[in-house]
Nucleic acid binder design. Sequence first.
DNA 1: AAATATAGTTAATAATATTAACTATTTTAG
DNA 2: CTAAAATAGTTAATATTATTAACTATATTT
Lengths: 172, 172
Amino acid sequence: MIEKSIEESIVLSIFDLSNQLKKIGDEVYQKVGLTTQQWLILLHLANNPNLPFFKREKHEKDLMASELADSLNVTRANITNLINVLLDKGLIRQYEDHDDRRKKRLKLTKKGVALVNKTQPSRLGVINFLTEGFTKTEKQTFLQFLEQCMNKLINEDEKIKSFHKLLVDRKG
Amino acid sequence: MIEKSIEESIVLSIFDLSNQLKKIGDEVYQKVGLTTQQWLILLHLANNPNLPFFKREKHEKDLMASELADSLNVTRANITNLINVLLDKGLIRQYEDHDDRRKKRLKLTKKGVALVNKTQPSRLGVINFLTEGFTKTEKQTFLQFLEQCMNKLINEDEKIKSFHKLLVDRKG
DNA sequence: AAATATAGTTAATAATATTAACTATTTTAG
DNA sequence: CTAAAATAGTTAATATTATTAACTATATTT
């Protein structure tokens, strides 16, 4: 019998919640012909300051595909495909970086900006509805908690893998 | 320019964190030939009390495929595939419900139980490491927060869709 | 100057999941 | 009590989402 644990409950709930949010997101964005991943790219190009990516690192210049790959935790090849869809739809445009001609930087078009602006109120409406009833302090603690988890996952990679070695070494 | 919002930061962080956790999970479970989804099924069949599913509803009898589909938020057809892999690996077994012959109930085999037990310490090790440094009270508040979000997503479906109608109705 | 690294793309393919159609059984409603 | 609807599971075809590996072009390092 596995024991109750707040910590495991939290992690499993985060998983579940993220899943549900993604499902709902997919349903909504489907109406404008996008997937949640494509949508996230638009949010990045809109410089949404609430994205964890922008909390980790500041960006002066427009983003490029490899930075999006980093943030979304997928391959560059995958980003190429996602970007092509957004280009086709005229939501973003691409231009070459004059300082480094390997790089292509990405920017929302007017149409892209308009779409983000149009959807932002209903996005925030849902988000505020979901999270209402907690104090600002509680929410801040909550956010710190999430950010700590993320930092550890990113910066203490080796420590985490050491836990898993227990599993693999004495297999069977 | 999109404004800073704790609430949006939280939601985007949950998304990001879940993603990272899934990636790490996939890496680890790959070593025993499983995916994160297959792993989650094992956790369900082990009656892990920390799964949101078991907090929402109590289950006396062994689970069946359609209940897993509910919990994982995927189609039954998908569960059939996932289950077949686990059956092939001898980690679970299936038996017919005598009261309702449409139903097939699922159970961990000895091998399945052994695998869950073997991996639980390293899973909990990582989880405790990630979440350390917060008080029990803070963690409880956090969990309540997550559970509130989930409840609203599940029970107040219509309210949420009403936000999105803003988006679709005045399209363009 | 040569070797290595970075950015992006392409083609083939893997994985993950969905839809639709079907069988079998049970429940509901007239 | 029967006909219709609902539930459980499966199968086959397909969609989607993502990865790997090989490649070009450019920049950086040694």
